[in-house]
């Protein structure tokens, strides 16, 4: 390995592939304490450290991804989101982020409650199962939808809970999670009309 492979964080982080990252970057105040649940290779956290000088922590279950996150300088640890939050003290973070991962957790409601306990605010983004392409696929094929948003076959999908924007709004209302802001995206553009039908991704700021 060459000796000049050492400055991983200064590598430009491509946020273009993940439009929700732009919104999250917009929400987060500089210098805040941020926990990213399911941080993957730490791309979002590295970007936030570099551009918002945040104090960054990440949790990720996949060893290979944790390795890459740590290699780029992010304090990530290998652990399970469903269990891992219990250790943190109340309000340890300004923001707890769950980016495109809610639909993969075993106990989403429990995770959301814990996020609001350890964080002053929670940022939740997820792919919208109510999007028209999903509805269309289901209607015309009669099979578990396989779309750009949900590209997996039913048997190897990491997604175990499917939710639409309206489902999430309902849950927040029922559980008393205060919604501070909502952002609806199609690609990287904002959607203001019929979001549950037209938005691919939703980002909610709770707290």
């Amino acid at each position: 390995m060459a000796s000049n492979t050492m400055t991983p964080v200064s590598q430009p982080v491509s946020l273009a592939e993940r439009p929700d990252f732009n919104v999250i970057g917009e929400i987060i105040q500089p210098g805040s304490r941020v926990l990213d649940l399911g941080c993957g290779e730490g791309a979002l956290l590295a970007w936030l450290v570099e551009n918002k000088q945040v104090l960054a922590r990440g949790v990720e279950i996949e060893a290979a991804q944790v390795r890459k996150a740590i290699a780029r300088g992010v304090s990530a640890y290998q652990g399970d989101i469903d269990e891992g939050l219990a250790d943190y003290p109340d309000k340890a973070f300004d923001y707890v982020i769950l980016s495109q991962t809610l639909q993969e957790t075993r106990a989403p409601l429990q995770v959301l409650r814990e996020m609001l306990r350890v964080g002053r605010r929670a940022i939740v983004s997820f792919p919208n199962f109510g999007h028209w392409t999903v509805r269309q696929a289901m209607l015309f094929t009669g099979q578990a939808p396989k779309t750009k948003l949900f590209p997996y076959d039913w048997y190897n999908s990491p997604n175990i809970h499917f939710l639409s924007i309206n489902d999430f709004e309902d849950l927040c209302r029922q559980s008393g999670f205060p919604i501070e802001k909502r952002y609806f995206l199609s690609g990287s553009s904002r959607v203001s009309f019929l979001p549950n039908l037209l938005a691919q991704t939703a980002v909610f700021l709770l707290g």
Binding site: R57, A63, V66, R67, A69, I70, V74, S75, A76, Y77, Q78, G79, G84, D87, Y88, P89, A92
Partner: peptide
Amino acid sequence: IVRVLRRINGDVAYCDLQ
């Protein structure tokens, strides 16, 4: 060790290497 450091909000990275 990692759990306790998390509990006190310490700065800890952890990986269980295969």
